[in-house]
């Protein structure tokens, strides 16, 4: 066990960072906001944490916290700026935002280290810290998926107009999605840079957006558990695919494409559906004929 841990420590740590990063895209999607800004905030968090650690020798928690604070503010301002955009346009605007963060990093001079980035961000972040932070984040998100908050989020995503008629302030929820996404992204970025000690502009490009999105698509976008499944798969899959030799990347591509096309709910969605239909069949078998009429007489008509 100890030996396994030692040989795989990088992958284990990457799984948690990947989880936080995937969550930073998943939370807005769950709120019905198609924003990829979490990845730009990952960059902000990574750079701020690195700068604070290298230049000012701040302790790790403060350096990451500073990154989260700045990213949170940026996320809120971004939410205000793009408040009138929706769907595809919002998605593309936030991808542009992510890429602008990369351009700023390239042109940041001594502060960001230019195209070669920053080196030597040494800090005492351990796997235990990662596990604790992830546990807290999962706990909070799991809470937000249940009860009154969960129902509100569901309403805001599925039918904003209906949500408004229920007295739910849709605009506030959207802003919250941006800020939560920014905090999660910045946290992931800050943790990763302090674990790996370096960050460069090429680390936060379009491919990172694709990776995080891939995790959610394959894992499932409805719950934190989907992001966890996705983060595990895409952190460990390359190792398992080594048997396939040089076609590893192609297999990876096929998996992503198949998931995107045929399993829109991700693996988690598949499992939930299976569980529900099992539950249904059990319920139908168990219940008498008393209250089943509405089920049997499924009206075909649509309202005028």
């Amino acid at each position: 066990m100890i030996a396994w841990y030692d040989t795989n420590i990088i992958l284990i740590q990457s799984t948690f960072v990947g989880l936080l990063m995937a969550l930073s895209l998943q939370v807005p999607i769950r709120f019905g906001v198609f924003s990829f800004a979490g990845i730009g905030c990952y960059g902000i968090g990574a750079y701020v944490a690195a700068i604070m650690t290298i230049r000012y020798e701040w302790p790790a928690a403060a350096a990451i916290g500073a990154g989260m604070l700045i990213a949170g503010v940026v996320g809120y301002l971004l939410a205000l700026t793009v408040r009138r955009l929706g769907g595809l346009y919002l998605g593309m605007a936030t991808i542009a935002f992510d890429l602008i963060v990369g351009v700023l990093a390239v042109n940041g001079g001594d502060l960001t280290g230019g195209p070669s980035g920053l080196f030597g961000a040494l800090a005492d972040v351990t796997t235990l810290h990662l596990v604790l932070i992830s546990a807290v984040v999962i706990g909070l998100l799991a809470y937000s998926e249940r009860g009154a908050i969960g129902r509100r989020v569901e309403a805001v995503r599925e039918d904003p107009e209906l949500a408004a008629s229920m007295g739910i302030d849709v605009r506030r929820h959207r802003q919250a999605a941006f800020v939560i996404s920014a905090l999660l992204g910045a946290c992931a970025g800050g943790l990763n840079v302090l674990l790996r000690t370096t960050i460069a502009p090429t680390d936060i490009g379009f491919s990172l957006v694709v990776l995080a999105l891939t995790m959610i698509i394959v894992g499932g976008s409805r719950s934190w558990a989907g992001a966890l499944i996705g983060a595990m798969i895409f952190t460990w899959l390359p190792g398992f695919l080594e048997f396939s030799g040089q076609w590893q990347k192609v297999i990876y591509g096929v998996i992503v494409a198949l998931a995107a096309i045929w399993v829109p709910g991700g693996l988690l969605g598949m499992m939930t559906d299976a569980y529900r239909s099992w539950q249904r069949s059990r319920r139908d078998a168990g219940s008498g004929d008393g209250d089943r009429t509405p089920l049997g007489s499924r009206a075909e008509g649509t309202p005028a």
């Binding site: 009154a148 129902r151 509100r152 569901e154 309403a155 599925e158 039918d159 209906l162 229920m166 409805r222």
Partner: peptide, 15 residues
Amino acid sequence: LPGLTVEENVRLGAD
């Protein structure tokens, strides 16, 4: 809301 049960849908109104 298709993802919620009947009870949860009604509860949304009570929230």
